[in-house]
Write a protein that binds this DNA or RNA. Structure first.
Length: 307
DNA sequence: AGCCAGGCCCAAC
DNA sequence: GTTGGGCATGGC
């Protein structure tokens, strides 16, 4: 019994273009700019070009359609359907979260088209080690630098060279001192140690962690250098399909205080509240809340700038 | 200029 | 087991 498809797709083999139509609850911009991923760049025409799983694509949305350029049908089916979580019924999820919760009704209306991307665990691990005590523009720069320095070139696309996310071996065997040019600061040591540890078995343990129970997977992740509860939560949620995971950072603390009156300093209280209120859907709730928190900041800045 | 950023580590209780 | 200071760096 396969899951029901909520979309149809066509492909143009000659032009390497795949068109997806009939999507609902999908907003490309919200999905790619809500802070879960760092390697997508918005082009002049509103499309996005990015790299995941060593493939370069350009993607744009027109109403309920997606147009994916530089993409074979095979890649669409084996990579991008899962990456963009196209088979999940987000209408149902939002309905459950909104039931008897006016807060979530408002929060979800802001990010109604967010999807949880299914990303690569190794890339997600390193990306969120980098993310600690940094802001999103800086995280993007660090990752870009890492990929340019150590990643394998994939292809020239529209005049630019795109690089794969580097393997652990590529990072370990890179030019001594090259890591320093990425400007990771104190995170550099975590990254090098993580690369050594993960590279030891070719990433096997990390990739198998996804099939453990969420609790066991979290315990494994917490043993990696530079990985604490928040980073582990992001890896579980964005790469391992643990959708009950509810990563709590400074934005989440603030917004949970603002919206639900919880104590910002009491991490355990916030976690327990989320577990109780959102349960298995915690990860989805977390993304809507995080987006709302950051959108709210952007709104304030716009308002300040205009007067 | 100075505060803050998708926190974690480690020492001191 | 909990708490708090220190932490490289750059965005804003």
């Amino acid at each position: 019994m396969t899951e029901k498809h909520h979309f149809t797709h066509n492909w143009d083999e000659k032009n390497k273009r795949v068109s997806v139509s009939g999507l609902s609850d999908f907003d490309l911009r919200q999905t790619l700019e809500c802070g879960q991923c760092f390697r997508w760049n918005r082009e002049q025409d509103g499309s996005y070009t990015g790299v995941a799983f060593s493939r370069v694509i350009n993607i744009r949305q027109e109403d309920r359609d997606l147009i994916i350029e530089n993409c074979t049908q095979d890649d669409f089916l084996t990579i991008w359907v899962e990456y963009f979580d196209l088979n999940r019924d987000y209408g149902k999820i939002k309905k459950v979260l909104k039931a008897d919760d006016p807060v979530m009704k408002r929060v979800i209306s802001f990010g109604q088209g967010i999807r949880l991307l299914k990303q690569d665990p190794w890339e997600t691990l390193i990306s969120f080690i980098i993310s600690q005590n940094a802001n999103i523009p800086r995280i993007k720069k660090c990752i870009e630098s890492l990929c340019c320095q150590f990643g394998a070139p994939i292809q020239q696309y529209r005049g630019k060279t795109y690089f794969a996310f580097p393997t652990p071996a590529a990072i370990i065997e890179g030019e001594p001192g090259a890591l320093g040019t990425c400007r990771f600061g104190y995170r550099e040591d975590y990254i090098l140690k993580a690369a050594k540890q993960i590279g030891q078995d070719g990433g096997e343990t990390l990739y198998e962690a996804a099939s453990l129970t969420p609790g066991d997977a979290e315990q494994y992740l917490l043993g990696l250098p530079g990985v604490g509860p928040k980073v582990a939560g992001c890896i579980l949620l964005f790469a391992m399909g643990s959708y009950s995971s509810f990563p709590i950072d400074v934005w989440m603390k603030r917004i949970m205080h603002q919206l639900y009156g919880l104590d910002e300093g009491n991490l355990a209280q916030i976690a327990a509240f989320a577990q109780d209120k959102y349960g298995e859907l915690g990860g989805f709730a977390q993304q809507y809340l995080f987006y709302y928190a950051r959108e709210g900041k952007n709104r304030e800045e716009m308002e300040r700038g205009s007067c």
